[in-house]
Design a protein around this nucleic acid. Structure first.
Lengths: 245, 245
DNA sequence: CAGTGGTCTAGACCACTTG
DNA sequence: AAGTGGTCTAGACCACTGG
């Protein structure tokens, strides 16, 4: 009485695609032949091939662009919560291209909720900025930053699509934000967030928020960001769960 | 020049299913009519209906069991990372049925990696235990716990399928584990983990690990757990990201 | 053993990207 | 304008669940 292993075409095709990538030495963002071409060459039904491709997409190994093609997904970018590495530092470390687009930047007055978070009085001037950050051309992080504008007057006068915010804080204002607390969770994108990050609505993304403090313990920055789960991998220092008993 | 809104059948059908659930007052675990029945009654192609069902499944609104049927998914169980609420406390709070199965329980010697995590010397006696915990009959959490066995001698003599581990620590050993650090990430199930949690291999699950300390700062417990993403929702106390500008 | 969800085949139209 | 992925139709077989 032995379990019959009737391997399904979908899984075989998925493996075949992975082999193809290796054999052809396809690099990240490398293009696969079109679905119809593969179907013909491999004698497949398109639905079966698409099912295999979908599997590899959810596994983070492929991505596809309507009207264009199917491509090899680049490895996820690793970020660590322990050290306070900014995304620009992480991108530099991994040799990635980081572009930043400022969606919103204004001086606002501290609200009740922000006042709690940052320990500032109501009405205190804050610099609020929302930025969309792209890794290797793919929208990856949607970031909302609040800065104590009274501690860094004129902070709003630079274009943080071009200049590093942290470098400005350090060089122009002598603020070295070394102490911080971050926390992570998962949420699902709203319609608007999905459009900005170029993912469907209700896609699971990492939600990271945190505060940065000056050396004398004052909160200068509060931020929250959405990070695409298909592009990032948040590693803790822990051993992999695969090392279970 | 207006964008034409040609709503796709799939999305219409998905909405129709949601309406059906409300109209028929279907409760969690309530059964939908069979796919073929719905196709006939609503004049649909089965592939289209299945596409709609798949969408609702990834959104956590339905689940299906091969050979049996498609059912209304119960709301996800909420857990919070900030407070150190155990899963049994969370289950009680939400009025859910929690069952625990011990897969492995033994005294082992502290390894190099564990020694780093727990700040204990190599060879220190640890109580290692792996448990599978089920919510309302569905395998939900795969948990691996390491306890400082020299601080709680005889800890291995109870059946933690029946008795609360934390209650035992508190009552029998006077250990109130109030201080802890947890961290969360995403990983993908191995074949074995998938079988235990009753999900396919390579399913995305939450990976939570953490350490619990005594009041005098000694690490007594190190744990890591896999939590099915379709059953849990991890919330932080922070404002929702939807409140972005 | 009848009914279920899971899968596969074969063929078609659509909106979009790209040369 | 040609080619691409995304979707839809119609019909079929499979392994499994449950009475």
């Amino acid at each position: 009485m032995q379990k019959t292993y009737r391997s399904r075409p979908r899984d075989e095709v998925a493996e075949r695609i992975e082999c193809y990538i290796v054999e052809q030495n396809l690099q990240p963002h490398g293009k696969l032949p079109s679905e119809r071409t593969l179907c013909e060459e491999w004698g497949l039904n398109r639905a079966t091939l698409r099912s295999a491709i979908r599997k590899l997409i959810v596994e983070g190994k492929l991505y596809s662009q309507a009207g264009s093609g199917t491509y090899v997904a680049p490895p996820k970018m690793r970020r660590n919560l322990q050290d306070m590495e900014t995304i620009s530092e992480a991108a530099r470390r991994e040799g990635r291209d980081l572009k930043t687009q400022v969606l919103y930047a204004e001086i606002i007055e501290c609200t009740k909720q922000l006042s709690k978070k940052m320990q500032l009085r109501l009405g205190h001037k804050l610099f609020a900025m929302q930025r969309l950050r792209s890794i290797d051309g793919m929208p990856a992080v949607l970031e909302l930053t609040y800065l104590d504008a009274e501690r860094c007057q004129g902070i709003e006068n630079k274009d943080y699509g071009q200049v590093s915010l942290y470098e400005t804080l350090r060089k122009d204002y002598g603020l070295a934000l070394k102490n911080g607390r971050e926390s992570i969770g998962l949420t699902y994108t709203s319609e608007q967030e999905g459009e900005l990050l170029k993912v469907p609505e209700n896609t699971a993304v990492f939600f990271i928020s945190g505060r940065m403090f000056t050396e004398d313990g004052h909160c200068v920055e509060y931020f929250k960001s959405l990070n695409r789960a298909d592009l990032f991998q948040f590693s803790s220092e822990l051993v992999s769960p695969d090392e279970s008993i």
